[in-house]
Simulated scan of single mutants.
Amino acid sequence: MTVHNIATKAAFDEAVKKYPVVIVDAFATWCGPCKAIAPIISNNVQRMSDDEKYKDVFFAKIDVDDLPELSQELGISAMPTIIAFKDGEIGDKVIGAKPQEIQALVAKQL
C-alpha cells in the first residue's frame, strides 16, 4: 500500500470507517520539520507496506492548510503530527519529526 493524499473530510471519514487501522500524517507544505522527515516517513511506509503484517494499514496524509476544520477537529497544534486510528477511533499521536516513535506508533496498532 502507498501513502494516500486525503483532499476532503469526506474522504478522510470514509478511510477511517473502511480500514481497521489508519495512520495519518498531518503536515504543512511550509513546515521545515515536515520537509525534513518526509523522505524518512516515505521510506518507512514503503518498507511497511511491503510487509504482510501491515497489509490492512491505510497510510494517509492531510495538508492542514487545505483541511483546517479537520485539523482542528483532530487537535493538531504542531506539524508534523502522526495520528493512529484503530477501528474508527482516534488513538495515539506523535508530534514532531521522530521516526522511531512513528514506527513504534504504527507497530502498536497491530
Rank of each mutant, 00 (worst) to 15 (best):
M1G: 15
M1C: 08
T2N: 11
T2E: 07
V3S: 05
V3M: 15
H4V: 07
N5S: 05
N5Y: 11
N5T: 08
I6M: 08
I6C: 08
A7T: 11
A7R: 11
T8K: 04
T8P: 02
K9F: 01
A10G: 03
D13I: 06
K17G: 07
P20N: 09
V21A: 03
V22I: 09
I23R: 01
I23F: 04
F27V: 04
F27N: 04
A28T: 13
T29A: 13
W30P: 14
C31I: 07
C31V: 15
C31E: 06
C31P: 09
C31A: 09
C31L: 13
P33V: 09
P33F: 07
C34D: 14
K35H: 08
K35Q: 10
A38D: 04
S42I: 06
V45E: 00
S49Y: 01
D50N: 05
D50A: 09
D50C: 04
D50L: 12
E52S: 03
K53T: 05
Y54G: 01
K55Y: 03
F58C: 02
A60W: 00
I62M: 02
V64N: 01
D65L: 15
D65C: 08
D65H: 07
D65N: 10
L70Y: 02
S71A: 07
E73S: 13
E73G: 13
G75E: 12
G75D: 10
I76M: 06
M79Q: 05
P80M: 10
P80Q: 08
A84Y: 02
F85M: 13
F85E: 07
F85C: 14
K86Y: 12
I90Y: 12
P99M: 09
P99L: 13
Q100K: 12
Q100V: 15
Q100P: 15
I102L: 11
I102S: 06
Q103D: 07
A104Y: 06
L105H: 09
V106T: 09
V106H: 14
V106L: 14
V106I: 11
V106A: 15
L110R: 14
L110C: 13
